[in-house]
Nucleic acid binder design. Structure first.
Length: 546
DNA sequence: AATTCCCACAACCGCGTCCCC
DNA sequence: TGGGGACGCGGTTGTGGGAAT
């Protein structure tokens, strides 16, 4: 570390007026710059001694009274994360891991809250664990939330007075007063069958539902997956994933919602399956955007399909008419940022339709969005959204057909899922403005540049696996188009990405490392690389791209 | 053996909130 | 009531070390 020469003045921390941190030779103008970087044992000792003597708090006084060249903030962090006597060290126990997953499902990224529930553990520790886990699961193409957790959270939610927001940590955490004008009306999930879907990491905004309806059969074929970049060195998980390819491509793996995956390492989860893509023959494009990632600021993005290996289960969504209306109208509530987190573009009913991203995207919006996202921090309440995603809205089609329907204890449930309130209307304003500017109000014009802008904003549009949409049904979508595609937000300029993901033969594309050349996949897309597009929405480090 | 890559984690940073004056 | 400091929170970055090449 930069112990010593690498020291810098900590931003946000006032320099010491006088300190005896002799080892620091950066003393400028008589002021000792506050040290940054790893703490030394000496510093630790000083801090511990001070706290033992004076107790916690008044952190800024430490540097004054002890001469410790650390700002109060740094002292507090060091104490809280490492020096506190009651801290638990070492790896998380399986039980702790299970709790973390559960808490994340409930609270979202409320690390401090989670830490409060886990004695001896710090928020930073939990956060790091979670982020690492996310990456790992992503890489393996595994669902972040085990089905049992989803189910549990769902049950908890149902039991609570405010039930309705299932697995929406943000919603549950948020004070109701925070619900602003952007709050999306509750979404009604009919025939909720959470467990049948098992875990999913995607947050699918309700607005997506209507898309499914309209795209009817098209979305039956989507595979949610994590884009995966080939690792230079294969991991066990990769191996597993690859090993699944065959079966996934040809059969519908069975997902056991009752298996507790909470603490499993990827390497020991060979039984995991991907309860998705009930219709492997479907040809509907499908896009999934995960929250918080860097945006593809340039539209030089390619249409290269994600060379992912795994598929994620896709919940179906349904909107009530009123909800649809809400989304359609310009003044309607835009999706919350949380909903923005996950973006999935659903292809129109006409699967031959191209989803190429308009080439005219200037990247500005993406930049803005990205900035906003970054700044705000991706409040990727995966689970919240995941849970929503997990909830099929329709059960007309026997889920069993999908191969993972049997276990759906709550098939008859009808629930309302309030969209998490948006805490920042700026992005919506920008997006909306952009859309307006671009004139995307030309409903149904999926190729409209403006529409594409909303990708970032758009709730995931996914095919409902259990949607009663027969192929025939998919052809009758006029009405649905009005309700759904009217809202430009459903389409992103990253259409190409969609295109790429929306493979006629998802499986093949997914697992075909050479799917760049997949004729089906790039039927109408350019050769751009979806990496940027995906990266723009995925909060994770996408190690999935070549 | 050197290099590269990746993971895990510690620490930093910016921002929001609380509290006191 | 508002200004400012203290503190907390969540996201991001940087670093060390191990594994793979």
């Amino acid at each position: 570390m930069n112990d010593g020469d690498g020291r810098k003045m900590s931003k946000g921390c006032q320099p010491l007026s006088s300190v005896e941190e002799g080892s620091n030779g950066d003393n400028i103008g008589g002021e000792v710059p506050l040290k940054k970087g790893p703490w030394t044992s000496t510093e630790d000792a000083i801090l511990v001694e001070y706290v033992q003597k004076h107790g916690e708090g008044n952190w800024n006084a430490i540097q004054k009274s002890t001469g410790l060249a650390r700002c109060g903030k740094s002292c507090r962090l060091r104490w809280a994360n490492h020096l506190k006597p009651d801290l638990k060290k070492g790896a998380f126990s399986p039980e702790e891991e299970r709790k973390i997953i559960e808490f994340h499902a409930k609270f979202g990224n409320k690390w401090a809250r989670m830490a409060a529930e886990l004695p001896g553990r710090t928020d930073n520790e939990i956060k790091n664990y979670w982020n690492t886990r996310i990456k790992r699961m992503q890489r393996a193409g595994l669902p972040v939330y085990p089905a049992n957790i989803c189910r549990q959270v769902l049950n908890d939610s149902q039991e609570s007075p405010n039930a309705g927001s299932v697995m929406s940590g943000a919603s549950q955490n948020s004070d109701l007063s925070q619900i602003d004008s952007y709050t999306v009306p509750d979404v009604q999930f009919k025939n909720l069958k959470l467990t049948q879907y098992g875990p999913t990491i995607f947050n699918i905004p309700e607005s997506t539902h209507s898309m499914f309806e309209q795209s009817a059969g098209s979305f039956q074929n989507y595979n949610m997956m994590f884009p995966m970049k080939p690792r230079k060195r294969p991991l066990e998980t990769d191996i597993i994933g690859n090993s699944l390819v065959g079966s996934i491509s040809t059969t519908v793996p069975e997902f056991n919602p009752y298996v507790d995956y909470s603490s499993e390492k990827i390497t020991d989860s060979p039984k995991l399956s991907f309860p998705c893509d009930p219709n492997l023959n479907s040809n509907g494009p499908f896009h999934v955007y995960l929250p918080g990632s860097y945006a593809g600021l340039n539209d030089n993005t390619s249409s290269v399909p994600i060379s992912g290996v795994k598929k994620l289960e896709l919940p179906s969504f349904q909107f009530s008419e009123t909800q649809r209306v809400g989304w359609d109208t310009p003044g309607s509530h835009l999706p919350s940022l949380e909903s923005v987190d996950t973006l999935i573009q659903s292809p129109p009913a006409d699967q031959t339709q191209s989803y190429l991203v308009s080439s005219d995207s200037d990247g500005l919006l993406e930049s803005v969005v990205y900035g906003s996202k970054t700044k705000r921090g991706a409040n990727n309440n995966f689970l919240q959204q995941t849970a929503d995603n997990c909830m099929p809205r329709s059960s007309t089609v026997n889920p069993c057909d999908t191969g993972w329907a049997e276990q759906s204890p709550s098939a008859d449930q009808t629930q309302s899922y309030p969209v998490s309130p948006d805490t920042d209307g700026l992005l919506e304003s920008i997006v909306y403005g952009s859309k307006t500017k671009r004139g995307w109000d030309e409903q149904g014009d999926l190729s409209s540049p403006g529409a594409s802008v909303l990708t970032v904003h758009t709730p995931i549009s996914m095919g409902s696996v259990d949607e009663p949409q027969s192929v025939e049904a998919t052809q009758d979508q006029d009405v649905k188009h009005e309700t759904v595609f009217q809202d430009p937000t459903y389409y992103s300029r990253k259409k190409e990405c969609v295109n790429q993901i929306g493979l006629k033969k998802p499986d093949a594309a997914l697992f075909d490392s050479g799917w760049r050349g997949n004729p089906d996949a790039d039927n109408k897309s350019d050769q751009s690389n979806p990496k940027d597009d995906l990266g723009a929405v995925f909060p994770f480090d996408f190690h999935g791209y070549p």
